[in-house]
């Protein structure tokens, strides 16, 4: 491993900025977040970055390292330094920039508020008793640490900027966890199709590629939801049967 690497860091805000090179001394197991801390501690204390746990669990240190959406605390310097020992670190590009590596991800919290919480009928005795086979599927989605890397990489939000039309992958799996919940009585399909905009997703799977929790967002979340929406809104046979027999109770 080389003794020093150069961090080419974006410094600036939404009005403009520069990439500035900082040389940092490496140590075994060093991650990119360590390098940023070293710059803050020894070269420039005004570098802005958000972090909390340094254990890939709080989801605060999201950035784009060599153009890849990553958690800085989970990205080894060794793996990212090119042949000249250079690593480029940029802020997330899908959200408004506050300063340097800090972006305003609050749109995600506003989206979360639009999703009705778990709705359980009053007749069900509390606390709920549930079987493992019923919760298994949704446990995967509960691993989400809300790093919003999937929201950052999703081309619907990133390239097409359709934040007005699509909730984004993180919220698709949030709805999936509710929709697949055995006790939830809320009808999630209309929201998915209309306001949530599931049709914008073209299942190109970038969300799944970047998720640090290795959640299968598309395979286990979005595609099953698309099938549920198809059941209700697009399958001519099912629509016909529903017309004849009447709607199924959930």
């Amino acid at each position: 491993m080389r003794d020093k690497v150069t961090i080419r860091l974006f410094r600036g805000n939404a009005n403009g900025g520069t990439e500035t090179d900082y040389e940092v001394t490496t140590f075994p197991g060093m991650v990119v977040l360590d390098a940023i801390h070293q710059i803050q501690g020894t070269q420039d204390s005004t570098v802005a970055c958000r972090w909390n746990c340094k254990a890939a669990k709080c989801g605060s240190c999201s950035a784009e390292i060599n153009g890849r959406p990553r958690l800085m605390c989970k990205s080894h310097v060794e793996d990212f330094a090119d042949s000249n020992g250079l690593i480029r670190v940029h802020p997330l590009k899908t959200f408004p920039l506050i300063k340097d590596l800090v972006t305003d991800v609050s749109i995600n919290y506003r989206t979360a508020e639009k999703i009705p919480p778990l709705t359980v009928s009053e007749d069900i005795p509390r606390p709920f008793k549930m079987q493992q086979i019923d919760v298994e599927r949704i446990q995967e989605f509960r691993k989400c640490i809300e790093c919003f890397l999937c929201q950052d990489v999703c081309h619907v939000l990133r390239d097409h900027n359709r934040k007005d039309g699509y909730f984004g992958p993180r919220f698709m799996i949030k709805i999936a966890a509710l929709s697949m919940h055995p006790l939830d009585t809320g009808n999630r399909l209309r929201q998915l199709k209309e306001e949530g905009g599931i049709g914008y997703c073209n299942i190109t799977k970038c969300c799944e590629e970047v998720c640090p929790e290795h959640i299968h967002l598309t395979d286990n979340g979005i595609i099953p939801l698309k099938e549920r929406v198809a059941d209700y809104y697009y399958d001519p046979l099912k629509i016909l049967i529903r017309k004849i027999v009447g709607p199924k109770k959930k």
């Binding site: 939404a14 403009g16 900025g17 520069t18 997330l92 590009k93 408004p96």
Partner: peptide
């Protein structure tokens, strides 16, 4: 070193090219 200024970017996003991945 490259410097960037905001021009066409929506909603105050980072004034950077959308991609800087190696080929």
């Amino acid at each position: 070193m490259a410097s960037y200024s905001a021009n066409s970017r929506e909603e105050g996003r980072a004034p950077l090219p959308m991609e800087n991945r190696e080929l």
